[in-house]
Simulated assay, not measured.
Amino acid sequence: MIARLWHGRTPLAQADEYERFLAARAMPDYRGTPGNLGAQVLRRDESGIAHFLTLSYWDGEASIRAFAGDDLLRAKYYPQDADFLLEFEPRVTHWTVTSAG
């Protein structure tokens, strides 16, 4: 299993709206991709900024390609992200899941 981790930052004033956007648009996209084994959004507020992580689980690289394209570590963005994010981090990280509860 592969865990895919993305990070983004929004102004705190837009964080609640972005959280709703992720729940309505991004999470169904992740979870609707064959081979996705689950996805979560994590949020941390700090000094006027909200940090968001999406943590998704995949059965293999082919499933990630179906979701994000051929460049496995390239971040996937939605057009609406431009209304919220302070920058567009170009890369995600992948982790091999060695234990799950």
Rank of each mutant, 00 (worst) to 15 (best):
M1Y: 11
I2S: 06
L5T: 15
L5D: 08
L5G: 10
H7D: 09
G8N: 01
G8F: 02
R9G: 10
T10F: 02
P11T: 13
A13T: 14
A13F: 01
A15M: 08
D16F: 02
D16M: 06
Y18S: 09
R20Q: 14
F21A: 14
F21E: 11
L22M: 11
R25P: 02
P28L: 05
P28D: 06
Y30I: 13
R31P: 00
R31F: 06
G32F: 02
T33Q: 01
P34A: 03
P34M: 01
N36L: 02
L37G: 08
A39D: 07
A39W: 01
Q40G: 08
V41C: 07
V41M: 08
D45N: 10
E46Y: 12
E46C: 14
S47L: 01
S47N: 09
S47A: 12
G48F: 03
G48V: 10
G48I: 11
G48C: 00
I49T: 15
A50D: 04
A50S: 12
H51C: 04
L55D: 09
L55S: 10
Y57N: 11
W58N: 10
W58S: 10
D59I: 07
G60Y: 01
G60C: 00
E61V: 07
E61K: 00
A62Q: 13
S63Y: 00
S63H: 03
I64C: 01
R65Q: 15
R65C: 13
G69V: 10
G69T: 13
G69M: 04
D70K: 03
D71I: 10
L72A: 09
L72C: 05
L72S: 08
L72Y: 02
R74E: 15
R74Y: 13
R74T: 14
Q80I: 07
A82C: 04
A82D: 15
D83G: 05
F84C: 12
L85R: 03
E87K: 03
P90G: 03
R91Y: 14
R91F: 12
V92D: 08
T96W: 06
T96F: 03
G101E: 04
